[in-house]
Design a protein around this nucleic acid. Structure first.
Lengths: 231, 231
DNA sequence: TTATAAAGCTGATCCATATCAGTCTTTTTT
DNA sequence: AAAAAAGACTGATATGGATCAGCTTTATAA
């Protein structure tokens, strides 16, 4: 029995996208016939907040961030590795423009599916629609957790959260080479680049991580986890 | 043409829930046969974070908050007036427990729909499923805006946001009697009760609002809006 | 109708973290 | 290979708002 709920600022839900499995061969052909594959370079924009929605964006390979921007500040909502949609909020017909922007952290292979094709499949295949609902739900719940953390945890905890998320869910390894700058890491953890630098340094000195430029290794997972929970 | 995106910390999306309209008479009977109506008193919990999901909760009449809690801090995700679901994240079968808690701000009439009935209707009626998708999308987008505001705006702007939201979307009047305490207002705007008090006082002295205990009237909507945008 | 608790309010203090200004280092461009 | 730009890092300073303590007013219960 759990006493109090724990939230993490993790940027990726555990949900595995399975909606293509719900399509029959014809539907899959229909989808493919109305999809295009595009290669994006690191730093390129996959979609811009406020522009018209013409397709649903799926990351085949690579890593991207989905973020909000008001010209001054930038808030990363989620980061998207292989095998995920950037977001499905735009499948709603009421959502005519993208409510967020997206940028590739690394060179990425992107599939764009025509939005009307996607909507048509939702209309004709309830299992597919249901899977879309599952994805939307999972995203919501994940955003809730992230929202809570960025609002109430302090910087230590938020940074620990992100390091754990990167290791567990993104790179699936305790050692990884960050394709992000300190500033971008700050956008993830909701703090300034300077604070990221200072705290990474402290984690390093405390023996929690072993850091060398862009390369980070998590040495004491348990203590980091504890910091993320109490921070 | 808009230069920069504006976000508001508003707690309620503009989306009007229309999903019952998508049901045919038999489906509606089926839904009604598997629904119950319950009266809740002010302060009562409508659902508790972490408990098993057994039904979908719809606010027929009243006002409720949906919030996250870790035992120390509380974050209000949305406030729900008449004619809205508390949230539909739980329609996903993967979501077996409520990811949030909910409490009635005032005496409220609640409809509970058996979760399996609801899921069955999604399975058999694509228009209904589509409407569920629309609601989930609208909620996500609303939460994104709120997330951004609570992360980057400062207290002035956040409080202005909430006052405007209450007037425009909840009470639909520039003058209203708050059924919330200063502490609850703080949970909405992401600040302490003391800060709410101080800033309301300042808004009052500046002639932006006219405040008398629980009764609040917005006097200078435009300036308040400007504060919400620049704060 | 008094007693008790909850909410509202005020002033003083403190601290986590942003911001700024500058240097050093690495990467990218020419 | 040199020049330019971007990123990493450091120390000093500033500050928005939380927290605390106490006091007053308004609800709620006895």
């Amino acid at each position: 029995m759990e006493q109090a709920m724990r939230f993490t600022g993790c940027t990726l839900s555990m949900h595995q996208c399975r909606c293509f499995e719900k399509l029959n061969p014809e539907e899959r052909d229909y989808l493919d016939a109305n999809s295009v594959w595009i290669k994006y370079k690191k730093g390129e924009m996959l979609c811009k907040q406020g522009s018209f929605v013409s397709h649903v964006i799926y990351v085949e390979k690579g890593l991207a961030k989905v973020f909000l921007d008001n010209g001054v500040n930038s808030l990363v909502l989620r980061i998207i590795p292989d095998g995920n949609f950037l977001g499905l909020a735009s499948v709603s017909e009421e959502q005519t423009t993208y409510p967020y922007s997206s940028m590739a952290y690394v060179d990425s292979d992107i599939r764009q599916v025509d939005i009307n094709t996607f909507r048509q499949l939702i209309k004709q295949n309830t299992a597919f629609a249901k899977e879309v609902i599952n994805i939307l739900s999972a995203n919501s719940v994940q955003i809730y957790g992230r929202f809570f953390c960025l609002t109430y945890k302090q910087a230590f905890g938020r940074l620990a959260d992100i390091l754990i998320c990167l290791a567990d869910r993104i790179f699936k390894n305790n050692e990884f080479d960050l394709p992000l700058t300190r500033k971008e890491l700050g956008e993830l953890a909701g703090m300034s680049a300077e604070t990221v630098i200072r705290m990474l340094k402290e984690f390093n000195e405390e023996g929690l991580i072993n850091m060398n430029g862009k390369s980070i290794e998590i040495l004491d997972y348990d203590r980091l986890k504890k910091i993320s929970e109490t921070g």
